[in-house]
């Protein structure tokens, strides 16, 4: 049972936190939606379509954040054979994939009226699409082996290898000419978004992050239970 000592410790810390992050997610997203849809003004160039940004940018941020968490957790699982690291990585993958799909879909819905195209193969869009394939590849690989540890190891290595894509996504708009605009929030000379639009954006980012943490606790708990079920069944077969 000592193999699950760490996951049990995780549950002792994470379970009491769950209602707090869940409420933080509900309140932040609620406030962000209210400000973004009702209070924020239309943009001087994009008009009302700027409101798509309040979903698109937080989703893009989460697509990167979930992958970074997945890669770090996978590294812990590979280096220190930390069973919890693998469970957190496995629990993060579907969440990150969902946020990546939201990012791509909302970006496309903004691009059509503003750029005049649903999709172009520029460096930013292509690298985000690759991020989506990395998530899908990870999820496929995790369950592809009969031997669970082999699947875990292969998927963790893929997660680590794919991490080179993260700086490429972030800096693609600076390194190369792209159709996508450069960064507006995280930049050296400060945000280039007016505060009336920055607040709903930040609230949505906080809300999405809290949503991810809440889902992460739920999914990790589920993975821990699944691992215990496997162990009991294996014990029944061998005993």
């Amino acid at each position: 049972m000592h193999r699950f000592a760490n996951p049990n410790q995780f549950l002792r810390i994470a379970n009491p936190l769950l209602p707090w992050v869940a409420w933080l997610a509900v309140l932040s997203i609620g406030a962000g939606l209210y400000l973004g849809l009702f209070q924020a003004p239309p943009d001087y160039q994009q008009g009302e379509t700027v409101r798509i940004m309040y979903v698109h940018v937080p989703a893009a941020w989460m697509a990167l954040f979930c992958y970074a968490s997945m890669a770090i957790a996978s590294a812990m699982a590979l280096i220190w054979r930390h069973p919890l690291g693998f469970l957190i990585a496995k629990a993060s993958a579907p969440v990150g994939a969902c946020f990546t799909v939201i990012c791509l879909a909302t970006g496309s819905l903004w691009g059509k009226p503003m750029w005049g195209t649903w999709w172009e193969w520029d460096a930013r869009m292509t690298s985000v699409l690759i991020l989506f394939f990395l998530y899908v590849g990870y999820m496929a690989l995790v369950d592809a082996f009969d031997d669970a540890t082999r699947g875990q190891r292969a998927a963790s290595i893929l997660a680590l290898v794919g991490a080179v894509n993260l700086p490429i996504i972030k800096f693609s708009v600076e390194w190369w000419n792209t159709l996508h605009q450069p960064a507006s929030v995280i930049r050296l000379d400060g945000p280039t978004i007016h505060s009336s639009m920055l607040w709903p954006l930040l609230l949505m980012i906080i809300g999405f992050t809290a949503f991810y943490l809440a889902i992460l606790v739920v999914r990790t708990r589920s993975e821990i239970a699944a691992a215990k079920i496997r162990n009991i069944r294996l014990g029944q077969v061998h005993g």
Partner: peptide
């Protein structure tokens, strides 16, 4: 044969821009 508009990184209300 094709013209796409490119957006910059500035977001602000019309009044502020004016």
């Amino acid at each position: 044969s094709e013209v796409l508009a490119k957006h910059d990184e500035n977001y602000m209300p019309k009044e502020v821009a004016d």
